[in-house]
Every structure is written in structure tokens, then in C-alpha cells.
Amino acid sequence: MATKTEARATGQRILQSFLSAGAQEIQPDILQPAEVLLDLYGEDIRARAYVTHDPGQGEMMLRPDFTVPVVQAHMAGGAEPARYCYLGEVFRRQDHLGSARAVEYQQVGYEVFDREDPETADAEVFALFNGLLSRLGLTATIGDFGILRAAVDGLDTMPARKAALSRHIWRPARFQKLLQRYAGLVPVPETRRETLGGMRSEAPWIGLRSSGEMELRISVLKEEAEAAPISRSDVEKLDALFALNCAAADAPAALRALDIPAIAPAIERLENRLAALKARRIDLGALRFDASHGRSTMEYYDGFVFSFATENPDMPPVATGGRYDALTRILGQGAEIPAVGGVIRPGVLADLEAGR
């Protein structure tokens, strides 16, 4: 495993490449306010963050990632367009992986904030990373959450169901359970049927929600239970979409063959992105397209996603990234800007370069 000195040296080399590409170096604090950030990272990172309490500043966390604090800094007054780069430590618990992964490791990254054509910016970031990593023979994979969200939004069902499915796109098991339930393919639990049927306990309300909030939730659940099920055909199409994995060159045709009208505009954006990648000499036949790529990572990605990885499932990806337009809207206090970026793990890269 690469030493901190080796990882830092590799990171500095990559950082210089990002600086040469026109990025401005930025260095967010290691200790970050936790109140806002924890809600943005998603369940996986929230469970793995190191959180502490400061008497003066309240709940704080060790930086688990750079993107969110970089967005905060930019939305607080950064010039546009902007390109940022950074190098430093991040901290994440690795309890689920035992002692095989370091809880403190380095990231070197590149972020683009630009109102010009988003697909061109996507291609810029991906091609930059590809140029730095192509000699290592890694598997490069792309995906697009915009396609998945468009398919869910196009379902013929009530808005509350579509909203719930959209919230759980990043939780595949939960998403599938909800989809099966909304399609009437699994029974409603007995306790829920009793509640929706009008039975009430004399026990007092407990928990943080008020009785009014609970009553509203019960009414929504009752409306869901009485709504017509999602059609078996739509379920099969969604299942086929989420399972799609092919060469990127074949993806538009494969997606159109699924006959999901709602994703047509998203397919056009994918074609524009692929054309921009091809213009930067990316081999679309070797590049993989996985429709579900990135579904178990951070929830702030809302469009294009990518990774570069080895064939070793025990090794983390060498690089990951994607588009996070909605994050700028959340942190922008009324302002927003299209944004895309990615990170490389210099320690993993140093190991590969050394043949470890």
C-alpha cells in the first residue's frame, strides 16, 4: 500500500495537470460544519462520517469529500465560469470493509462550473481524467441519472409514488421493493392494511412527528393504496432500463429499443455527450455504459456519472465523478449553475503505477 509520502507525490503530479488545464487551486477546511453537509451526502457517507461537537461552532465533521465544500465556496461568491482543483485528505469510516481500507486517504480533484453546453463540460472532465489514466488499462464506465429520473417521472401513477421512487433511486433494494409494491406484485403488510383500513390505537403519539403530520402521512399512504397499480409492462421496462449495460456506442439505440417515451430528451443529451467525447478521441466502443452506474454512491449526482476502475472488486475505483447541478441549487440560496467534476485517489494510483 502506498505511503502517505508516495500518495502525496502522485497527487501533486495530478494536481499540476489540473492546474495546467486552467483550474484554480482551492483548499477547504478539514473540519466542516455538519448540520447542512450531512443531509447532502446520502445514507452511505452519513453513516461513515466522523462527527464531533464543538462548544462554539456546534456539530462539526471531518471532511469526507471535497465537492460539497467546494460548491459552498463557489456559490458564496465564486466568479463564473470557474474551474477548481484540490489535493488533500478525506476521512470516512470503513467498518463495513474491516481493516482493508484506510479511513484517512487523499483525493485530488477537478470541478467545472460553467453555463455553457453541459455535455461539452462532461466530456472535458472525462477526457482529462482519461488522458491521465489511460495507460493503466482501467475499465472506464459512464452512466446518467437523468435517464433514470426521466423514466420514473414518466410513469403513469400518482405524483407521491413517483416522488418516493425518485428519492430511492440511490438505494436499489428499497427502490425495487417500492416498485413491486406500487405494481401490486407484493402484498401490503398486515399492520399497514389495518392502519389504512381505519383502525386506531388508543396509545399516544410518540416520536418527533406531530399528530397532524402522522395523520397526513396516513392519508398519503391510504391514497397510494387505493391508486391503480403501475402496469406490469412499465415495471418490465424499468427493470430492463436499470439493468442495461453495453458499449457506450450502442447505448442510444439500446435505450430507444426499450420504448420509454419519457426518456427521449435524455437520450438526445446522451448522444450529444457521446459526440463530444468522440470529438476528444474517446473510444466509444471500449467505453462502457451502465444505466445503474453510481447508484450506491453519493446522492448529489443527478446526471452524467463516470468511474475508472481495475478488475479487482476489493480495490476502490481509481477515479469517480459526475454532474451535480441540483447541489448548486440547494447551496446557492436562490442561485444555481451547471457543475461537473471528479476525483482521483492518488494512493490507489501510486499502487498501480508501482505494480502493487
Score class of each variant (00 low, 15 high):
residue 154 G to D: 02
residue 301 Y to N: 08
residue 255 L to Q: 04
residue 3 T to K: 14
residue 70 V to F: 01
residue 176 Q to I: 00
residue 124 E to M: 10
residue 15 L to H: 06
residue 240 A to R: 00
residue 302 D to P: 11
residue 273 R to W: 05
residue 282 I to N: 01
residue 284 L to K: 12
residue 4 K to A: 15
residue 338 P to N: 03
residue 66 F to L: 12
residue 275 A to L: 07
residue 101 R to H: 11
residue 54 D to P: 01
residue 251 A to F: 03
residue 157 T to E: 00
residue 134 S to P: 00
residue 73 A to Y: 06
residue 317 P to S: 11
residue 125 V to Y: 04
residue 251 A to K: 04
residue 180 Q to T: 08
residue 33 P to L: 04
residue 97 L to D: 03
residue 327 L to P: 02
residue 190 E to V: 13
residue 212 G to V: 10
residue 152 V to P: 00
residue 90 V to S: 02
residue 37 L to C: 12
residue 233 S to Q: 10
residue 297 T to L: 11
residue 14 I to C: 14
residue 312 N to C: 01
residue 164 A to Y: 01
residue 139 T to S: 13
residue 50 Y to M: 05
residue 296 S to G: 13
residue 212 G to K: 09
residue 67 T to C: 11
residue 60 M to D: 02
residue 340 V to Q: 03
residue 298 M to H: 08
residue 278 K to M: 07
residue 223 E to G: 15
residue 185 L to M: 13
residue 277 L to M: 09
residue 286 A to I: 02
residue 70 V to A: 02
residue 213 E to H: 06
residue 51 V to H: 07
residue 143 G to T: 14
residue 113 F to A: 00
residue 57 Q to T: 09
residue 273 R to Y: 07
residue 317 P to L: 04
residue 95 D to A: 15
residue 94 Q to I: 05
residue 330 I to Y: 01
residue 77 G to T: 11
residue 120 T to V: 14
residue 129 F to K: 09
residue 336 E to A: 09
residue 9 A to C: 14
residue 186 V to C: 01
residue 209 R to F: 15
residue 90 V to T: 03
residue 180 Q to P: 01
residue 288 R to V: 10
residue 257 A to W: 04
residue 260 I to R: 04
residue 235 V to A: 00
residue 26 I to M: 12
residue 146 G to R: 11
residue 135 R to T: 15
residue 287 L to M: 11
residue 71 V to E: 00
residue 13 R to N: 13
residue 279 A to Y: 06
residue 144 D to K: 14
residue 174 R to K: 12
residue 72 Q to R: 13
residue 127 A to Y: 10
residue 3 T to I: 14
residue 19 L to C: 13
residue 220 V to L: 12
residue 185 L to E: 09
residue 46 R to C: 04
residue 157 T to N: 03
residue 297 T to M: 05
residue 178 L to K: 13
residue 202 E to M: 14
residue 21 A to Y: 05
residue 126 F to L: 14
residue 46 R to G: 01
residue 347 G to L: 08
residue 5 T to P: 05
residue 252 P to K: 06
residue 351 D to M: 11
residue 126 F to W: 10
residue 87 L to E: 01
residue 310 T to A: 09
residue 118 P to F: 00
residue 220 V to S: 02
residue 279 A to M: 07
residue 88 G to W: 08
residue 315 M to V: 06
residue 144 D to T: 11
residue 224 E to R: 13
residue 158 M to N: 14
residue 26 I to G: 01
residue 169 I to V: 12
residue 291 A to P: 02
residue 342 G to Q: 05
residue 231 S to E: 02
residue 163 A to I: 03
residue 33 P to W: 01
residue 308 F to Y: 07
residue 318 V to C: 07
residue 82 A to D: 02
residue 122 D to Q: 10
residue 304 F to E: 07
residue 162 K to Q: 06
residue 200 R to W: 04
residue 208 L to K: 15
residue 200 R to F: 08
residue 305 V to D: 10
residue 82 A to C: 06
residue 109 G to L: 06
residue 39 D to H: 09
residue 32 Q to T: 05
residue 130 N to L: 09
residue 41 Y to W: 04
residue 152 V to I: 12
residue 284 L to D: 09
residue 298 M to W: 04
residue 258 L to Y: 03
residue 240 A to S: 00
